[in-house]
Design a protein around this nucleic acid. Structure first.
Length: 274
DNA sequence: ACGAGCGCCTGTCGGC
DNA sequence: TGCCGACAGGCGCTCG
């Protein structure tokens, strides 16, 4: 799915309006359409249509991998999961094959939540805390210091990769950027979190932030058949590069399964824990 | 506490 | 060509 940089890219596109596209901020919802019922997690269909119609978009933001639309009275929260994307188009255009949720605004604008795999979810809630409350800190938040990170790592005896993917531990990391950050920090994905020294933790946090910032600058990563316009895929060090030379030492990149997720690393730069 | 396994879905790709 | 398994940017659940 879109990870933090991809969601951040989408938020910027929806907020500032890119090129010919208009910003959604300030627009009022005129109509809504749910094409795949399970996409709407809350509330039920009838209440959703009644409540969202007539509400104005006050702001659009991101928390972890969640898209957060602040409306006049509620929050529309969308999680894109594996294959979701947001499309802005004119209402006169044909609906996309993978349209799951459609919101029509004034000026004939239409926002479509596309999601081939149907894993994505949308919520319309009065309190965003009910959906976002359990999320861990934002990795790019200045208040998230090396000290805090180190102390949190020490609290668990977990493999570092699944821990970084745990959204209640840290919000926004996904499979791509976790592999990239661990390679940059020269840490093996199976390293126990409490075995990481303060210096290593500080460096890992810097690597996480560097990878995320660079990916945001490149507008995210475009892989598979879903093209989002980003080109960070050209900068990937290990993700999806099984058998290709490590950019630092030329050893072939290896792939293992960690927590059911494909995991890419350099066996030389990231030596296995004792 | 921690991790494995599975379900949710559709699409792509490589091997035979 | 057709079929079949593996795999895919995520996460919630159950079970040891």
């Amino acid at each position: 799915m879109p990870e933090l940089p991809e969601v951040e890219t989408i938020v910027k596109r929806l907020t500032t309006g890119n090129g010919a596209q208009t910003s959604l901020v300030g627009l009022t919802v005129q109509n809504s359409l749910v094409l795949w019922e399970r996409t709407l997690a809350e509330p039920d269909l009838t209440e959703f249509h009644q409540r969202i119609n007539g509400q104005q978009v006050v702001g659009i933001s991101r928390r972890g991998k969640y898209l957060v639309f602040s409306l006049s009275a509620d929050y529309l929260i969308i999680h894109l999961r594996m294959s979701g994307d947001i499309l802005i188009a004119e209402q006169r255009e044909a609906l996309d094959t993978y349209a799951r949720l459609v919101i029509d605004f004034e000026h004939s604008l239409r926002m479509t939540f596309l999601d081939p795999r149907k894993f994505g979810r949308a919520w319309l809630v009065a309190e965003k805390h009910t959906i976002l409350g359990a999320l861990g800190p934002e990795p790019l938040d200045e208040a998230f210091t090396p000290n805090l990170f180190y102390n949190q790592l020490q609290r668990y005896r977990r493999q570092i990769k699944p821990l970084l993917l745990d959204q209640t531990f840290l919000a926004g990391m996904g499979n791509i950027y976790t592999d990239e950050a661990l390679h940059m920090a020269k840490i093996h994905p199976l390293t126990r979190s409490n075995a990481i020294s303060f210096d290593l933790a500080q460096n890992l946090l810097q690597c996480i932030q560097r990878v995320l910032r660079q990916a945001i600058e490149r507008h995210g990563t475009s892989i598979d058949w879903i093209y989002r316009g980003g080109d960070y895929q050209r900068s990937l060090r290990v993700y999806g590069r099984t058998g290709s030379p490590c950019p630092d030492c030329a050893t072939p990149v290896e792939r293992i399964l960690v927590g059911q997720r494909g995991t890419h690393f350099c066996p030389v730069c990231q030596p296995a824990p004792a």
